[in-house]
Simulated assay, not measured.
Amino acid sequence: MVIRYDSPLNLLVSTKGHPFDRNAFSDMFDAMRGMTWTHIEQPATAALLSPEGCADFDAILFYDVPGLQFRTPEPPALFDPPETMKAGFTALLDAGKPMIFLHHAMAGWPTWDPYAEAIGARFFYQPGTYKDRPYPDSGYLFPATYRAKVLAKHPVTSGLGDGFEVTDELYLFEMLETGDDLIPLLAAEHRFTMDEFYSAKNALEARMWTRDGWTHGPGTNLVAWAKRSGNAPTVTVQMGNDGKTFGNENFRTLVRNAVDWVTSDEAARWARNAA
């Protein structure tokens, strides 16, 4: 792969912490013209996250699950972000660095609330808290074939018509942050109740596809949204589980639209709440 120092758009992509189809994932980004991407893995990502460390990148895309160490059938070990990462991540948001969060990145840094606040949601692998409120472990369902319905005419949904069909993994979770700072973009046409999903905690206890002992209220049907996080424009896309999704042309359009929008002057003005 040639290093493109002259690329008009340079995307930093962070992974590790959850298995995925690396070849299909790479093929998706390699097919995106007019940009280059640089792959980095946790924990190196945490060390790079600062305005200075990310100065050469136009946006950061997270497809990682930092802060957890899975050890089935025992509960995962949880780790706080390094203090330098906390300061650097906060400084990036204050500086307006565009960010995109894909799929299991919603579970990252489960002990640090500002990370979930930046995303607007959190996938709980085990019961936890957010801003001192208790939450049950989240639910999962795959493979799930559903229609992702477009909710807003927005640059991120451009070219998607009124929606598209995808076979992917769905999550049962609650939105943590709402309001004028969040723009709903796509909703899944599916029933988001616990009888349709399985317990993440049970899965980590080597009891896949079970929900015994689990209670969860109705969840959100949102599978993509834009959010103003600090001074930064962010986009979260809940889908993105496997190679079939990475090869879905509509999903590729969605991700590329997200990259183009968060790096636009329009998104920067919106994030800073400027006219």
Rank of each mutant, 00 (worst) to 15 (best):
F25C: 03
D64I: 06
I100T: 08
Y198K: 02
I183H: 01
P75Q: 01
P155R: 13
F123G: 07
K16G: 01
E177D: 02
F192T: 00
L185F: 08
E74C: 01
F142V: 03
N250A: 14
S158M: 10
A87Y: 00
A258T: 01
D21N: 15
G240P: 12
V237E: 05
S26T: 04
G230A: 08
W37Y: 14
V237T: 12
T167I: 08
A77W: 02
V259Y: 08
S229K: 06
T220E: 08
T38V: 13
T84D: 10
H103M: 11
R147C: 04
D113G: 02
R133C: 00
A107H: 09
T111I: 07
A232I: 10
T210H: 12
V2I: 08
N250L: 02
F124V: 09
A188E: 03
K227H: 10
F123I: 14
P75T: 05
A224L: 13
L222N: 04
M85T: 06
V223E: 03
G120M: 12
L68P: 03
D137R: 07
D162S: 14
H190I: 00
A200W: 14
L102H: 05
L182M: 14
D181T: 08
N257R: 03
G240W: 09
V156H: 10
P110M: 12
N241H: 15
D21A: 15
G96N: 02
P98Q: 08
L11Q: 04
V65P: 05
W112G: 00
G139Y: 03
K131Q: 13
W261L: 12
V2R: 09
D30I: 01
D265S: 14
T90I: 00
A274D: 05
M32T: 01
W112P: 05
Q126G: 13
P155I: 04
M32N: 01
L48Y: 01
M1V: 02
F246Q: 08
W225K: 05
T263H: 00
E189I: 11
N248Q: 10
L254T: 07
F57V: 09
L185K: 04
H154M: 12
S138W: 06
F164D: 03
L182V: 15
Y171G: 05
G88T: 01
R252L: 04
A267Q: 01
D27Y: 04
V2D: 03
S199V: 04
L222W: 13
L204G: 06
M194H: 12
D56L: 08
K16V: 11
Q69L: 07
A118M: 07
R22A: 15
L102P: 07
K201H: 11
L49G: 00
R252D: 09
K149Q: 10
A144L: 02
G163E: 02
D21T: 08
E41N: 12
